[in-house]
Design a protein around this nucleic acid. Sequence first.
DNA 1: CATCAACCCTGAGAGC
DNA 2: TGCTCTCAGGGTTGAT
Length: 284
Amino acid sequence: MPELPEVETIARSLRNPIEYPFHAENKIGTRPGIVSRRITGALVTWSRSVALSDTAEFEKRVQNRVVQAVERRGKFLVLALDTGWILIHLRMSGDIRVEPGNADGLRPHDRVAICFEHRVRLVFNDTRKFGRVWLVKDPQTVLGNLGPEPLAEEFTHSIFYDKLHSRNRLLKPLLMDQQFLAGMGNIYTDEALHLAGLHPLRHSGSLSRTEVEKLHRAIRDVLQEGIHRNGASIDWVYRGGNFQNYFKVYQKQGEPCQTCGTAIERMLVGQRGTHFCPKCQPLL
DNA sequence: CATCAACCCTGAGAGC
DNA sequence: TGCTCTCAGGGTTGAT
């Protein structure tokens, strides 16, 4: 499931020069981007993938818009148009392709195709149909409630300490709460808690200054490492990244902890599968 | 305010 | 082999 590093990787690839040739190899850093491309049309094959009651309106309104910038906010992909914004959330199984072609010849599970000049298209593929594409005048209507960016300079450990102590929730669901902190998902939360040596069931208000500093560092390190590896390719969606080969706890239940040799455990926390080392991440 | 369950979906994997 | 069943997963919504 794409989290901050996977979305960041995609955003960066969409900012690549548009002159790059298609398909020399699958390297994400050498694929052609979409900035400055003009949209000639769009096709929506599953109406609920678009957050508009009328998909024909989406197809019509994106016509002739030019992509001016590609950003990321939390797990959202943000396309700034000359007029308006396209926002994309990949949720569980969403993926983005940029390839030669028009509205014909789409593949299974392709939900939205945005066609550009020179016969280039961006395709939103989403097997489980949880993802969404928005077309809005003001991105804040969708992004307005998101918490801070964990990698932003302004996100200091002392601000984090205050935020954690302003609530008293279980660490794991709180870190995954996008209104509390934007971009963390199941994988990176488990990995960050393990790196910080904190049990997922710790209460946020119980953390000492030192523990908050360790968690702050761990979150940023894990996210940076994920970005460095171009994200993770899991859930049978290959995205070019290989961070899945560096997981310490995620889906490692039963395997020995790389730090202490204790078997990694899996438990449900807030309806989410949660992986941790009972020795490195003690509850008390 | 915190917690919990249901819902949106599909396909993988288990069980028969 | 092929059927049916269960489950994972992010985020939203509504109930407790």
